[in-house]
Every structure is written in C-alpha cells, then in structure tokens.
Design a protein around this nucleic acid. Structure first.
Length: 286
DNA sequence: CACAGCTCCTGAATGC
DNA sequence: TGCATTCAGGAGCTGT
C-alpha cells in the first residue's frame, strides 16, 4: 500500500523525468480516475495539456505535479495506484487509467488495479495547518511525519495535538488531518517500535510518551525510505504490500502467529475499523 | 465540532 | 471443478 515512504520514493523517481517537461497530451482512460474533478476527465485533460511541469511535490500520501500556470495535477494513489514509465514495447495494460505524453516522448502511466486512486487538476491554496501552498483539495491535510520531525519543536507540538483526541491512538495516527502519511502498515510498525497498544485512548498518554512514538515513527519511515531507495530500479516500488524490499523488515504487520522480533511472543491479529491490526501482546502494553 | 461506521473497487485466496 | 464468500484498505461521506 502506498503510504508516505512509497509515495516519496515514487516522487523521487518521477521528478527527474518530469521537471521542465511540457505535457503534450493527456488521456484519461477511465472516468472513475477523474471522479473528483469538477468537469470530469475532459476538464482534467484540458487543464494540464500544454502546461510545463515545474516540480513534483508531496505532502503525506498526496503527490502533485506543479504546473507553470500556478496550478497542479494532484495524484492520490489510493491503495493500488502506480505512476510508472512503461517500456515502449509494453503490451496491453488492463489497469491503465490515464497516460500523459511529455514533450520528449516520455509517457507517464497512471495504473490502478483497485481504483481507489484519483487525479485532480486543481488550483493551489494555502494549507489550513501551516499556510504552505498545496493543492486546494489537500488544504485540510496536516503536515506529514517527515515535516513534523524536521522541525525542532515538531514532535512535542504534535504530541499535544494527538493528546487532544479521545480515540485510540492508532485511529488518531491514521487521521490525515492530525498528521499525514501514516497508513495501516506504518501505524502498526511505529506502535510496535514504541511498545504501545494502539487501542490506548490518545488522551491517556503523556506528551513524552507520544513524542517517543513520533520519533519511532520517523525511524520506521527512514528505514523504509532507505529500502525503497535501494530497490528503486524502475518506478515500480512498494505499490503492493507483498512485493518490495521493506516488507522483509516489518516487525509485526501481516505476521500473525510469527515471533515478535523483540521478545519472541507470537504476534496477534486484531480486528480494527473493518481491517486488521497486528501487535505483540507481550511487549505492546496498554 | 469530534467521532465512528459505511462505502467505493478489483482480484487473490479460501471455503464448501 | 466451480461457484460463492472473504479479505485487503485510503479517505470522503453520513449520521449521531
């Protein structure tokens, strides 16, 4: 699943191919990919065609191509989206949702098996959180875990924001309006690293404990980024939890019944929000 | 406003 | 073998 490290890996891979290039043609092959765009696929294509890409930016799981008219092409990969540079001789592609042809002949493909991803050609607007210029549909998205931990007071301030919530701490970590970039996999991994049970109500945790959780999360993200970078041969990395480098470093996610790498107790799977949580019942305490 | 549950979707894995 | 069911989940949306 593309969470922050996967989207950042894709951003880094894509940027050298896109920066400075003009979009010669845009084809949306399935309307659903542009379902959030007012005016739909035709409007999306019209807004980006002829524009030059000035940068590829990211906040949390939201990635966008900044365009030379001050607008952006916003991309959310959902749970199976990919941005790839297909081989010129590639055959038919049943999961291709959109294709962008650049002025040097490069074609960037948006592929998406489960179709939760979407594209939106939109204006920029100041973030509601810190004023950073971001695509208007992402103005409600909080600064991500890398942005937070890059600021000296960031972890402590975020700890206070988390503590203001009454939900279980895992649910708060997954709320992209509190801190962004964390999905189900990294939430479980950072909770394990911090020895915390995600069901503990956030307002029962101390600031110091939460700041530790945030720093542990940064560590997990950094290790995943390093693994993504290492395996980054094509733009085909970590879009599917089963394949990819960092899956071999996961401590608990998807490892029910296997030993906790820290204490050896069997990892358990628990139902949570219509999905799964994985944790070590011995070293992650409430 | 905070919070929790529902829903969209496809394909692999599992059950009988 | 074949058909039905279960499972995976990001985030917008709805109801309380």
């Amino acid at each position: 699943m593309p969470e922050l490290p996967e989207v950042e890996t894709i951003r880094r891979g894509l940027a050298p191919h896109l920066a400075g290039r003009r979009i010669e043609a845009a084809a949306v092959l399935r309307d659903r990919a542009a379902r959030r765009q007012p005016g739909g696929a035709a409007e999306l294509a019209a807004r980006v065609t002829g524009r030059r890409v000035t940068a590829v930016d990211r906040r949390g799981k939201y990635l966008w191509w900044a365009l030379d008219d001050g607008t952006a092409l916003l991309v959310h990969l959902g749970m199976s989206g990919q941005l790839t540079l297909p081989a010129a001789d590639a055959g038919p592609d049943r999961h291709l949702r959109a294709a962008f042809t650049l002025d040097d002949g490069t074609v960037v493909a948006f592929r998406d098996q489960r179709t939760f991803g979407w594209l939106w050609a939109c204006d920029l607007a100041p973030s509601r959180h810190d004023g950073r210029p971001v695509p208007a549909p992402a103005a409600h998205i909080a600064p991500d875990l890398l942005e937070v931990t890059d600021r000296p007071r960031g972890p402590a301030e975020l700890a206070h924001r988390i503590r203001a919530r009454r939900s279980g701490v895992k649910r708060v970590l997954l709320n992209q309006e509190v801190v962004s970039g964390i999905g189900n996999i990294y939430a479980d991994e950072m909770l394990w690293a911090a020895r915390l049970d995600g069901e503990v109500p956030a307002d029962e945790l101390g600031v110091r404990r939460l700041a530790g959780l945030i720093r542990a999360g940064r560590g997990v993200m950094d290790r995943s980024l390093a693994a993504g970078g290492t395996s980054f041969d094509s733009l085909y990395v970590h879009v599917n939890g089963e394949s990819g480098y960092f899956s071999r470093e996961l401590a608990v996610y998807g490892r029910a019944g296997l030993p906790c790498p820290r204490c050896g107790a069997a990892v358990v799977r628990r139902r949570f929000m219509n999905r799964s949580s994985y944790l070590c019942p011995r070293c992650q305490r409430r």
